[in-house]
Structures are given as structure tokens and as C-alpha cells.
């Protein structure tokens, strides 16, 4: 695996994880779980606008929105996640994806390899079972972005 296709912010996160020992990687994931932004008010009261990622062991809901400027450049995708505080691992990975992918274009997001979660070096500590939910989260984002990009083209 290599990080060549990763957007800059995500590549930096991967480098940060890889530079650490396993226990410190878990601590870093915990920090990401704390840094996950709250939903904006317009989504907070509208759970029906979010989709559940059922492969996650804990409830995780997400949605995407597009932001287009007038200059005709490709739309930026904004990512929104909701996960309860009692699911820090799920929240942590949502935090990684938020910091790594929020505001990017469809092309950049779709270029992220599906097995990107493996690059964080957490598989042994978190177990393959738990990693599956993370991979599903990325997969869901990519599918929604792809569908949205098709609609707009």
C-alpha cells in the first residue's frame, strides 16, 4: 500500500499515525473522536437527512453536501457525521475522515483507496472486525459522492 493517491490532509494524518507506537495511535484516535465537530443546527433536528452506516458496531450516521462557487470550479463536498460519545472508536475514525476529506472535490475523494483505513496502523489494536465498520464508512462516503457527482454532471 502507498499513500500516493491520498489528499494532502489525509496523507498527513496517516503519517502522524504511522509515526507513533500502537498505544499512542489509539490515543490519537481518541483525540480525533473528541475533535469531531457537532452537526450544524439544520441537520441536528433532522435525523432523516442522515444515513446510518450499518456495518459500524455503534450507530454512525453521515451525510454529504456540495458547495459550488460561481467560478465554475468543481464543487467541494462537505461531510457531516453523527456518532454517540459512547462510541469513541467510531467517532475517532469519523473525525479522521472529516479532517482528511472535508471540503475536497469528488475527484479527490473518489481517488482515496478503499483500504485507506488499514494505513493508520490500527488493525491489530482495534481488530479486523472493528476496522470493517471504518472501511464501510469510507465506502459509503465515496458512493454518495459518486452518486452526487453523476447527478451534477
Amino acid at each position: 500500500m502507498s499513500t500516493y493517491a491520498l489528499p494532502t490532509a489525509l496523507a498527513e494524518i496517516v503519517d502522524d499515525f504511522q509515526a507513533l507506537t500502537e498505544p499512542d495511535r489509539l490515543q490519537l484516535l481518541l483525540e480525533f473522536s473528541r475533535a469531531l465537530p457537532e452537526l450544524p443546527e439544520r441537520l441536528r433536528d433532522h435525523p432523516e437527512l442522515l444515513e446510518q452506516v450499518v456495518e459500524c458496531q455503534s450507530p454512525l450516521f453521515l451525510t454529504i453536501e456540495t458547495e459550488k462557487d460561481d467560478a465554475g470550479s468543481p464543487a467541494a463536498f462537505r461531510l457531516f457525521f453523527k456518532a454517540p460519545p459512547e462510541a469513541p472508536t467510531t467517532r475517532g475514525f469519523a473525525g479522521v475522515l472529516h479532517e482528511g476529506l472535508d471540503g475536497l472535490t469528488a475527484e479527490e475523494i473518489l481517488a482515496v483507496p478503499d483500504d485507506m483505513p488499514e494505513l493508520l496502523g490500527l488493525t491489530r489494536a482495534i481488530t479486523p472486525l472493528r476496522m470493517r465498520g471504518m472501511t464501510a464508512m469510507l465506502g459509503r462516503i465515496k458512493r454518495k459522492v459518486a452518486a452526487s457527482a453523476r447527478l451534477q454532471s
Binding site: 490515543q27 481518541l30 473522536s33 458496531q57 459512547e86 469513541p88 475517532g92 489494536a125 482495534i126
Partner: peptide, 9 residues
């Protein structure tokens, strides 16, 4: 716990 980080919170 199910969640490997929950204890740490």
C-alpha cells in the same frame, strides 16, 4: 467494552 477506546474516555 465493545468499543476499544471507551475505557479511556
Amino acid at each position: 467494552d465493545e468499543d476499544v477506546l471507551l475505557y479511556e474516555t
